[in-house]
Write a protein that binds this DNA or RNA. Structure first.
Lengths: 160, 160
DNA sequence: CTTGACTCTTTAGTTGCTACAGGGTTTCCA
DNA sequence: TGGAAACCCTGTAGCAACTAAAGAGTCAAG
């Protein structure tokens, strides 16, 4: 099948497939005379595996490790367990961070119940306070903990 | 004060300050003869405000909106409340996603209790299954929901 | 034979920084 | 006074995992 069919079959975008090939997650395929990539069932399965892992929020690097195990079926899979345990740890840590963040945000929101002028807005005033390290509030550790991005989307809609 | 002092005073990196200036979050400053930026208290407060917002995981775009309100203190701050409510919604949604993810990962982990050869590893076998839409498992909605990245860090340590 | 759908490569954009490279300036200490 | 260290400047490239678009070629149907 051609790349568009593979894309449809796996629910992946065409560009993403080419990207995975560049990244070495999918092997380079044979081509038609017209230089079109052609794929078989094995490719579809491998791509499904990758997408499944991605839906579990694994990084491409983690997936690379798992693929190495799939490609070497006689290896001991202890490292697979370890990788998954570590990934679970990441997710759990991020949940804890976000919960602390949620508490802070709700506390902040409570400072301004109704709309008035910005100069007296409890939220803006609180955000302007020198919080830095005086208040050892969760801000410090939430911030440093690397898990960026809560969501994006309204942004890209905007340019449409 | 010079940029390094401002950086120390607010716990921000120098490059980050210059970046905020490029992005229009901080105004361009006057310079010394030697072309050094000089800052005053107002700059320090504004930067603290920004960093405080960032520690609450707001995007620069959201912060831009808040700064507009701070700069126009007679405006009605209803939009501030709305922005914060929306942000809280993002965080809550991401928490729900991650919890669902955590459940899936733990279920997956249970499939392989001890290390054996990769060909019989329950985890690898499960991940290889065509999950797509057959299983309407959380995979679908977790994936599409835009909140990428659980954490990163071991990666950058590697290059040291 | 032409239109449209598909494919190709290459490049740049996204977010919020961080880290250079390759300079100039200031300050401190001997 | 001289020279090294510590600071500052601009500009550019890199991170993750794509996404989009430019500009060109290929293929199938009407």
């Amino acid at each position: 099948m051609k790349i568009g069919e593979l894309a449809k079959a796996t629910g992946t975008q065409v560009e993403t497939i080419r990207y995975y090939e560049r990244e070495g997650l999918l092997p380079e395929t044979t081509r038609t005379e017209g230089n079109y990539r052609i794929y078989g069932e094995a490719h579809a399965e491998r791509l499904s595996f990758i997408r499944h892992c991605r839906s579990l929020d694994m990084t491409l690097e983690e997936i690379r490790v798992l693929l190495r195990f799939k490609d070497a079926p006689n290896e001991n899979c202890g490292e697979v367990n370890a990788l998954l345990d570590e990934h679970i740890g990441h997710v759990a840590a991020r949940i804890r961070e976000l919960r602390s963040l949620e508490r802070q945000l709700k506390g902040l929101r409570d400072l301004c119940q109704e709309a008035r002028d910005a100069a007296h807005c409890g939220i803006l005033n609180e955000l302007a306070r020198q919080g830095s390290e005086g208040g050892s509030s969760a801000a410090g550790h939430v911030h440093g903990a690397h898990g960026r991005s809560v969501e994006r989307k309204s942004i890209k809609d905007k340019r449409k």
